[in-house]
């Protein structure tokens, strides 16, 4: 599904190398987790994959189902099936959540040469998806993420994911700022989307999210590289011993 090879990235504005040769392959239908200490480059990886400005790819590639995503505009990556659940979802005053969702769904359909969804079909679709995430009509009416609590913002991310039906989902610290109940709700939303054709890359600091979203593979990232890869037990090791042991081991 997603193949990242030797990815080197530096900040555009300053001469600072963030990713120093990331190699990572996420197979179709699998859930991969990336853990790592602060500043290891986890979020940068998610931004670079989704096409945010401000980064220079100096070497390497990222291929999604045979297509080099790094060459595409962010909206083309979305249409190709890539989705990033933001660590800090953006507030957009003046744009209703419903309008936003409908614009996004239809833009992607259009880009893929599919017919736009009718207003009635869309309404039915959004209500059904929103219900399972406990998103009420009021949250759909309000401007995008404006005045939403931390939990509401993250649920809104998952709602977008459910509606856009991407094949490659990247979750950037989706657990940050969530209490236990909210995290459970979000994890349930993610689990409901797990399927044979859909892959996940879950970026997190903590093992607790992975109690709810069980990964197939866990990677440890440090200083801009994947330094260790293993099964779910690797996450437990981090939880027990912290990163220091692993980093010492690979150093």
């Amino acid at each position: 599904m997603l193949e990242i090879k030797n990815l080197h990235v530096k900040l555009e504005e300053e001469d600072k190398q963030i990713l120093k040769g990331v190699d990572l392959t996420v197979e179709t239908g699998k859930v991969h987790a990336i853990m790592g200490p602060n500043g290891s480059g986890k979020s940068t990886l998610s931004y670079v994959l989704s096409g945010k400005d401000g980064y220079d790819v100096t070497d390497g590639e990222a291929v999604l189902d045979g297509e080099d995503v790094l060459e595409m505009e962010p909206e083309e990556r979305a249409a190709a099936g890539l989705f990033l659940a933001f660590q800090y979802p953006v507030e957009i005053p003046g744009v209703g959540n419903m309008t936003f969702l409908r614009t996004a769904v239809n833009a992607q359909r259009k880009a893929r040469g599919e017919e736009e969804m009718s207003a009635a079909d869309f309404l039915k679709f959004v209500r059904e998806k929103a219900k399972s995430l406990k998103i009420d009509a009021d949250m759909l009416k309000r401007p995008v993420n404006v005045g939403f609590s931390g939990g509401e913002k993250k649920r809104n991310e998952i709602l977008q994911m459910a509606m856009l039906e991407p094949k490659m989902c990247i979750l950037d610290e989706t657990d940050s700022g969530l209490d236990v109940d909210a995290m459970k709700l979000v994890a349930e939303g993610v689990n409901a989307l797990r399927s044979e054709g859909r892959s996940f890359l879950v970026i997190t600091h903590y093992q607790r999210l992975l109690d709810h979203i069980k990964p197939d593979v866990v990677h440890i990232m440090a200083d801009g590289r994947i330094v260790k890869t293993g099964g779910p037990e690797l996450a437990l090791e981090v939880e027990t011993n912290g990163y220091a042991d692993i980093l010492a081991e690979v150093a």
Binding site: K52, E73, P74, A78, I92, A107
Partner: peptide
């Protein structure tokens, strides 16, 4: 906000 919208597929 512009990037957020683009990342959802809006040109």
């Amino acid at each position: 906000a512009l990037f957020y919208l683009q990342s959802r597929g809006v040109s």
